[in-house]
């Protein structure tokens, strides 16, 4: 069983720009994934306002019985979040790694339009390698 079930990248206005399914269970159709992405975007924004602590940057981790949701927000407001097995370790590291891949293979690509859905072959390739590596590392642990 894969540690990571699915990965979402949303732009700063809450639009889904990348979605990838890794687990076999709980596949989502396009509409559901878009809905979940904008829902998470709003929840994240509300949580910042509601938080009693000063300087809160939003929800980093949401824990449920059947899944964990790890979220990483870049300085520009692009959010990366992954749904994974409950208690899966080192997800923040994987998300940061994915952010790095995004800056390399998406932002440096002259054919990518900002805030638009990501369709970059090199990003796909390196992302699947990173996820694969993460899985192997998880098995070794």
């Amino acid at each position: 069983m894969a540690a990571i079930y699915s990965l979402f990248i949303i732009n700063k206005s809450g639009g889904l720009i990348y979605y990838k399914d890794y687990g076999s269970a709980g596949r989502m159709d396009t509409n559901d994934s878009l809905r979940l992405a904008s829902l998470w975007h709003s929840m994240h924004a509300i949580s910042q306002q509601l938080s009693p602590t000063v300087g809160c940057t939003g929800i980093d981790l949401l824990r449920a019985d059947t899944f964990d949701l790890h979220c990483f927000q870049s300085l520009t407001g692009t959010k990366f979040f992954a749904i994974c097995e409950p208690g899966a370790p080192y997800m923040e590291l994987l998300l940061k790694g994915i952010y790095e891949l995004y800056t390399d293979y998406v932002l440096k690509n002259p054919f990518y339009e900002m805030e638009m859905p990501i369709r970059c072959e090199l990003f796909e390739l390196n992302l699947s390698q990173a996820v694969q590596k993460d899985r192997v590392a998880l098995l070794a642990r």
């Binding site: 440096k108 690509n109 002259p110 054919f111 369709r119 970059c120 072959e121």
Partner: peptide, 14 residues
């Protein structure tokens, strides 16, 4: 190194 040419641009190479 960081460039993926979209399918609709055919054989274009930077």
């Amino acid at each position: 190194r960081f460039i993926s040419v979209p399918k609709d641009m055919g054989a274009f190479n930077c």
